[in-house]
Design a protein around this nucleic acid. Structure first.
Lengths: 149, 149
DNA sequence: TATTGTTATACTCTATAACTATA
DNA sequence: TATAGTTATAGAGTATAACAATA
């Protein structure tokens, strides 16, 4: 049996921290006319070329009906391309434009600069361990997190 | 100038992780007839005696009108006490009953047992560093997180 | 007049259901 | 018939405004 872990729940530390980080991003995003979802979309397309809108929605944890307005605006602003796939005209191939890639890099740099300010509160070794650990946990398959395995 | 930090945004790792952790808590909470907010209230009252409902709401990041229904049910189930302060009859003094304290401990143990399963994916040193770092970041004053200082 | 708690209302976000077009 | 995308609608969650009691 595990000894009684005398610590706050992991979720109780992580969820409010996530909320605060999101709140800290808000002004940066607003300065570039982006909503949080728009930024998430840009980031995901930047990292992972995605074929269908449904796959994109699933990957970023959004409902597929909800990203449509987001994509509409990103396309209208020339930040993404959304072209019918010649091989299957039902699907819209999604990709970043040069402008979209550039904007995403600019915003990401600003966001990470703010985050660096916070990470400065940690000892360098802890900071590295934190990022490494978060990556490990974030990469766990969802079933493992949910405990359904 | 800081070198380009080649990492995902902190928020992009933490927020989905928090969502997953919350989802993992859901069945445990439901098994004990608790909503997330109810559990948050029990946990906070367990750790920090709180005088007014407004202070409680503020501390847990909820709107003060929103916890009323939560408190109603917790009180009705005999998990918390909510007594008018004799010194100022506007305020309701909040405290856990023995039953409330016990339930909170039971649920917390179950939640942390699941979390231990996840933390097992980390090297022991990383695990310690993660918890230490999260605590440090979670304890930062909100203004520092928000970058308004 | 200001504050605690409460209720009623409006708003935002999100998910569900129904539709169009392709396959 | 099944799937990608879309639109319209309904639902949950949240915040705002107005109120009663007390200070």
């Amino acid at each position: 049996m595990a000894e009684p872990a005398n610590r706050p729940d992991l979720a109780a530390m992580i969820v409010p921290l996530g909320r605060s980080l999101m709140a800290a991003e808000q002004p940066i995003l607003a300065a570039h006319g982006l909503t949080m979802w728009a930024y998430v979309v840009l980031s995901h397309l930047s990292a992972t070329p995605t074929r269908t809108q449904a796959a994109l929605a699933d990957a970023i944890g959004a409902d597929r009906t909800r990203i449509i307005g987001v994509l509409d605006e990103l396309q209208q602003r020339g930040l993404i391309r959304r072209e019918p796939d010649p091989a299957d005209r039902r699907v819209r191939l999604l990709s970043l434009t040069a402008a979209g890639r550039h904007l995403r890099e600019t915003v990401s740099a600003a966001i990470q600069a703010n985050e660096e300010r916070l990470l400065a509160a940690l000892a360098p070794a802890d900071r590295r361990a934190l990022l490494r650990s978060l990556r490990t946990l974030a990469d766990l398959p969802r079933e493992r997190l949910a405990g359904t395995d």
